[in-house]
Design a protein around this nucleic acid. Sequence first.
RNA 1: CGGGACGUAGCUCAGCCCGGUAGAGCACUUGCUUUGGGAGCAAGACGUCGCAGGUUCAAAUCCUGUCGUCCCGACCA
Length: 582
Amino acid sequence: MRWSQAFIPTLKEVPSDAEIVSHQLLLRAGLIRKLAGGLYTFLPMGVRVLRKVEAIVREEMNRAGAQEVLMPALQPPEIWQASGRYETARDVLFKLKDSAQREWVLSPTAEEVITTLAAAELNSYRQMPVNFYQISVKFRDEIRPRFGLMRAKEFYMKDAYSFDATDEGAMASYRRMFDAYGRIFARCGLQAFPVEADTGVIGGNHSHEFMVPADTGENDVVYCETSGYAANIEKAASRGPEVPTPKDRTGEAPETFATPGVVTIDSLAAAPYSVPAHGQIKTLVYIVDSKPVLILLRGDDLLNEAKLMARTGATHARPATPEECVQTLGARPGSLGAVARIPQDVPVYADEQLRGARGMTTGANEDGFHLRHVEIERDIRVSHWVDLRTVRAGEADIATGQPLKIRRAIEVGHVFKLGTKYSEKLNATFLGETGQRHPCVMGCYGIGVTRTLQAIIEQCHDKDGIVWPTSVAPFEVCLTPLTVTPGSAPRELADRLYADLTAAGIEVILDDRDERPGVKFKDSELVGFPLRLNLGEKSLAKGEVELKPRGRNVEMVPIAEAAARAIAWVQAERARLNPAKA
RNA sequence: CGGGACGUAGCUCAGCCCGGUAGAGCACUUGCUUUGGGAGCAAGACGUCGCAGGUUCAAAUCCUGUCGUCCCGACCA
């Protein structure tokens, strides 16, 4: 490719609506342009990278035994109603009507379609295990698209679905995908690591997310360097808070005391009350699938909504409004408690940290009053003891007792053992060896291809621009003659090297633009080609060309060796990023 | 959905408070010079000031509405 013929609209200045560096570089390097919020056009360089990431995903999926299919993005709502997700996923589902007023949904994932296919086509245990995948455009009605490709309304995703006759088989399928994911991200030059993930309403503990550490990520990962434990904060557990919960028996009965104007944990912890936060019971009213529930936490703990959803099996949960609190408990937020006046039909979920708690202080369910000397198991009707709190950095790892750390990360992949949720609802059953009919045991496995692309930039860049891993770079080598006049030595050599490298199977872009050297250097570094060959009059006169790997120092090599050295460099990088092939 | 900010040339922005008919830098076109880190000089082209109403002799500027974009929040009672 000749740069003069290529469409690579680089930007010197930072577009005002790009906040994070990877988004800025996507725009500045001429990979994408925005059409509207959360919708982007991929320009030629962007497409080249996208296709490379996609190819890596495809190769590894095929290697893992998955078979590629392609499903419609436009889907009938009936199958979504059948799975129940028409309701549970309503917030992210795009819906539309055709000219006959028939409704359709735009697919965010394809469990319903693939399970419908399986219901029709998979009839015998002999047909399993089988794993179908596709790489296609997905749609999500994001309430707030942001960060360019990170959270978009339309994006590229690889989604795979495994079908097994047995639970053990499903675990083997899961493992194969888990391993394939490790290879995929490694080949993309990306440092991504698996963390235990929340399994939501489906339950079980076989779900991992693949995370790329980045301050701009939208997930918090809890991890322990000693034990290797790593989990999404939505799922993470620890040995508990550093300050233990008071449990000394006092024998005193609950006592009401006036706390005018005190409606926060902090103000009750301050003088004149001086009740430490860990000696308080925080009472929350949540509306879970339209019904009120009470949630009890230690005063210094934070509710983990994902855990709440998982423990209650709910699909929607939100804090109750002050009016709903009054309706449920007769008091406003700030004075809520679970000791008295709790309607029988309102379940009380108490966090495990409160088990055995004594001498606690909590709201009296009367505005302006609190209760002290509360013993939770004596005074409160707890219907469920569950883990609901959010782990904090510094708490002890369950395995080793070492302090846990927390960092932000970008989720680029997710593997999930689904079980029979979809196969039961959509009737994907098969006949087993004994002639019995069983639902298929499923797994689903996603990789955000466009998000992965941006995560690579987020991880691989410097002050000058993108530093592409060779495996996903739009071109592997950028030939940069500093003089482009036909017949000049740099131009002649560039043309010759272009032919040699191309013949060796290297992807080369020749910067034949009649631009000043500074412009060419800046552009090639912004776009991020892994290896640049500078061909200047001065060094050529000395019989040398410059080999400039992106982000590393220049090396002078004799003209006669230039092609061989460049080829060797690229091949070494390819091998480093794909050891299996080397 | 709540809050905040911003919409002026392809891009980054000024002008708005205090109304008088639109500017800078970069990019683009042409010419000359320059040629190892986003060149210099000269000339040129580029705008329904997001859109719709309103106030006014006069609106980018003031008022109302609307659309769009970005940020924060949507657990901490």
